[in-house]
Amino acid sequence: MDALKSAGRALIRSPSLAKQSWGGGGRHRKLPENWTDTRETLLEGMLFSLKYLGMTLVEQPKGEELSAAAIKRIVATAKASGKKLQKVTLKVSPRGIILTDNLTNQLIENVSIYRISYCTADKMHDKVFAYIAQSQHNQSLECHAFLCTKRKMAQAVTLTVAQAFKVAFEFWQVSKEEKEKRDKASQEGGDVLGARQDCTPPLKSLVATGNLLDLEETAKAPLSTVSANTTNMDEVPRPQALSGSSVVWELDDGLDEAFSRLAQSRTNPQVLDTGLTAQDMHYAQCLSPVDWDKPDSSGTEQDDLFSF
């Protein structure tokens, strides 16, 4: 819950932080000083300027060897085509990944977070970031790969997607708890209302004896509580940590079903599988986004697919 609360507080303090972009060759504004600060901008989305290598189908939802083989196929196909790589912007948030063309600003792909089953910074092609997700059109699994400016960037994108998945799962947990509370309150309110109706004398007997209905007592009954809980029953509950912020979080049926399955089948359902080692994760978390744009010590960066 700490990640969720800190993310909400950060967004309320400075929503404009989320509009910064990394990996864009110096076009961005001043960047936060450390990885923790940038992680807090996830709610509205972190932007990464990358190059799209392509996509291939895979048979399993996750796995280092599986993704490595898929990336190898994608890279080989991209090299064989001889075409310049498409420059894209990857927007990562707890909602998922939005992929747009840098030149036309046209939407290429919009992947809900619950469809993503794996992401990684490839070991062999260490400047490549990739994720595996279920197609929104059918049940097939797709591996999408992107060329980053350097290994640090690939690791940073991988960690960002993993963190977005974690925050999304926490949102789901909060929403589920809130819905259970509202359902319980609604049920209790309905029981109270039913009890009051059972003990209320029939209207005919009131008229016969000349008694008047006590409207004041009726007004004191917990009807307002019942209506408050039943009027918006169809509205999706939102985490309290975000009250007053500009973010509107809505959970669709697909996300609810997917996270429910994860909660039942996995020990740590909030953790998205990645190909990063503990050492890689520690190294990337210690980086400032400013470091992502620094040239690798191995030599001059080449803006070309064939540089790796």
Results as ranks from 00 to 15, higher is better:
19 K>C: 09
108 I>P: 00
118 Y>K: 15
194 G>A: 13
282 H>I: 14
181 K>I: 11
4 L>V: 14
38 T>P: 06
205 S>N: 08
289 P>Y: 07
33 E>P: 14
47 L>N: 02
18 A>G: 13
77 T>Q: 09
209 T>K: 12
96 G>T: 02
159 L>N: 11
144 H>N: 13
33 E>G: 12
144 H>D: 00
220 K>E: 15
214 D>Q: 09
243 S>C: 09
146 F>M: 00
162 A>V: 01
94 P>E: 02
210 G>K: 04
179 K>L: 12
292 W>T: 03
180 E>T: 10
172 W>H: 03
69 A>E: 14
67 S>E: 02
28 H>N: 14
190 G>R: 06
307 S>K: 14
113 I>W: 01
23 G>P: 05
13 R>M: 14
32 P>Y: 12
228 A>E: 06
302 Q>Y: 11
189 G>L: 01
72 K>H: 05
33 E>I: 14
172 W>C: 02
149 T>W: 01
301 E>V: 06
209 T>P: 14
102 N>G: 13
291 D>W: 11
259 F>S: 02
39 R>I: 03
158 T>L: 02
134 Q>S: 14
187 Q>V: 01
238 R>N: 08
248 V>E: 06
164 A>I: 04
67 S>P: 01
291 D>R: 08
27 R>H: 06
180 E>F: 09
163 Q>N: 15
187 Q>H: 04
102 N>H: 08
118 Y>N: 03
102 N>I: 08
228 A>P: 06
181 K>Q: 15
19 K>M: 13
73 R>Q: 15
6 S>C: 08
236 V>M: 07
137 H>A: 12
91 K>V: 07
91 K>H: 11
23 G>K: 14
226 V>E: 11
200 T>S: 06
141 L>T: 10
114 Y>F: 07
212 L>Q: 07
129 F>R: 00
109 E>C: 07
189 G>S: 02
134 Q>A: 03
109 E>G: 11
20 Q>E: 12
123 K>V: 07
171 F>L: 10
33 E>K: 08
277 T>L: 06
59 E>L: 09
155 Q>T: 05
105 N>Q: 13
268 N>D: 09
29 R>P: 15
190 G>V: 04
161 V>W: 01
288 S>I: 05
105 N>S: 14
44 E>I: 14
162 A>L: 10
223 L>P: 10
150 K>Q: 12
277 T>P: 13
39 R>W: 04
111 V>S: 03
7 A>P: 13
81 S>H: 11
177 E>N: 12
90 L>M: 10
206 L>V: 14
147 L>P: 00
25 G>H: 08
290 V>I: 15
207 V>L: 07
26 G>R: 12
180 E>D: 14
294 K>H: 07
38 T>K: 12
215 L>E: 12
219 A>E: 04
7 A>Q: 12
5 K>C: 07
24 G>D: 11
225 T>N: 14
136 Q>A: 15
134 Q>C: 15
227 S>Q: 10
61 P>F: 06
241 A>G: 12
80 A>I: 08
119 C>R: 00
25 G>A: 04
164 A>H: 12
123 K>N: 09
264 Q>A: 07
103 L>Y: 06
133 A>Q: 12
125 H>Y: 00
192 V>K: 03
106 Q>A: 06
53 L>I: 01
153 M>Q: 07
266 R>K: 04
208 A>P: 04
7 A>M: 08
305 L>Q: 07
224 S>L: 03
55 M>C: 09
6 S>Q: 14
15 P>L: 01
280 D>R: 06
44 E>L: 15
269 P>N: 04
101 D>K: 14
252 D>R: 03
240 Q>H: 13
279 Q>Y: 09
33 E>F: 14
46 M>H: 10
272 L>N: 05
300 T>D: 06
48 F>C: 01
128 V>M: 01
133 A>W: 02
82 G>L: 14
302 Q>W: 05
3 A>D: 10
36 T>R: 11
43 L>M: 11
219 A>I: 04
111 V>R: 08
42 L>R: 15
125 H>S: 00
111 V>N: 08
2 D>I: 01
23 G>F: 04
196 R>T: 09
251 L>N: 07
203 L>T: 13
157 V>T: 15
294 K>T: 13
164 A>V: 12
83 K>L: 13
267 T>L: 05
277 T>S: 11
292 W>P: 09
130 A>W: 00
98 I>H: 05
86 Q>I: 11
125 H>I: 00
159 L>E: 03
87 K>P: 12
147 L>H: 00
75 V>N: 00
237 P>L: 07
238 R>M: 08
293 D>T: 10
247 V>N: 09
84 K>L: 08
20 Q>A: 13
133 A>T: 09
198 D>N: 06
76 A>T: 08
257 E>T: 06
64 E>C: 13
6 S>G: 15
228 A>T: 10
91 K>D: 06
279 Q>P: 08
68 A>S: 08
177 E>K: 15
